Amino acid sequence: MPDDAPQAPVLGSPRPVTGYRILLPGQWDQVPLRHGTEAAIRRILDSAFSRIPDDAPKDKIGPYRQELERRFRSAVEQAQRGNALDLYLPVKPMNDVNLGASIVVSESLVPRSVRSARPSDPTDVVVQFLAQDGVENADLSSGEVDGALAVRREHVCESDGAIGDELASRRVEYIITVPGDPERWFIAAFSTVGGGSPRDELADALVEWFDAVMATFRWRRG
């Protein structure tokens, strides 16, 4: 049979990946960034505004709503500039604590410069891929997530003083190979400012929580 002849599907072969799912507590909500973004923004903001106490000072409500919407839309726009797929944010307090945290989901193709180097191991591919963004002193480890090779990277990103980025943040990324498509990588990036320091106990607890969330990750197959 010629090499380029159509191949019959293998009985019992896995169906192609069409998406993903993760399990999050009810305090978190999803903002899709490709379709339905504005509807999700309005739904989340309306829910947040509905929780403002009826006896709140009228002169405080307007500025509070405006600042909440500004910060929320700023986070969405920042994720969209990164060409992300989904943004997850804690939209309700957890144990009366308002969390400064987010999860950004995106996908990326292996850069041509990395493909041309032809590394022999998939882990080497993602390590070279990560090396291109200039992050130093990161903790790297590898394993599997729902049967796919995954590399976990954790580091602290110092503040650059820009608006909306005034505090240093603790960041954890899972970079996962997409089954059946070795040049595509799925990326789930978690970020938190902790209780004001990316190295405090709250940040440590939230990193452990995100690792537990990623243990629930499963591919959706068509």
Rank of each mutant, 00 (worst) to 15 (best):
S50Y: 08
S50L: 14
R51Q: 15
I52W: 03
P53G: 01
P53I: 04
A56G: 04
A56C: 09
P57V: 05
P57W: 05
K58T: 14
D59N: 14
D59T: 13
D59I: 14
D59H: 15
K60W: 13
I61F: 00
I61E: 05
G62S: 13
P63H: 15
Y64D: 11
R65Q: 11
Q66I: 05
Q66F: 08
Q66V: 12
L68W: 02
E69N: 06
R70H: 10
F72R: 08
R73N: 08
A75D: 02
A75N: 10
A75F: 03
V76D: 04
V76L: 08
V76K: 05
E77D: 14
E77F: 08
Q78I: 15
A79N: 00
Q80M: 14
R81Q: 14
G82Q: 11
N83V: 10
N83A: 09
A84V: 02
A84S: 03
A84I: 04
A84C: 00
L85H: 12
L85G: 06
L85C: 08
D86I: 07
D86A: 10
L87A: 02
L87V: 05
L89R: 11
L89G: 09
P90V: 12
V91Y: 10
V91F: 11
P93W: 00
M94P: 06
M94C: 11
N95F: 14
N95Q: 15
D96K: 08
V97D: 05
V97Q: 06
V97T: 09
V97M: 04
N98T: 07
N98Q: 01
N98R: 02
L99C: 02
L99Q: 02
G100V: 12
A101K: 01
A101R: 01
A101N: 00
A101Y: 04
S102T: 07
I103N: 04
I103R: 03
V104G: 00
V104K: 01
S106E: 03
S106P: 00
S106V: 03
E107N: 12
E107G: 13
S108N: 12
S108Y: 06
L109P: 00
L109N: 08
L109Q: 09
L109G: 10
V110L: 01
R112F: 14
R112Q: 14
R112H: 11
R112W: 10
R112N: 09
S113H: 05
V114F: 01
V114A: 04
R115A: 05
R115I: 04
R115T: 00
S116R: 15
R118I: 05
R118K: 07
P119Y: 03
S120Q: 15
S120C: 09
D121Q: 14
P122V: 09
T123F: 11
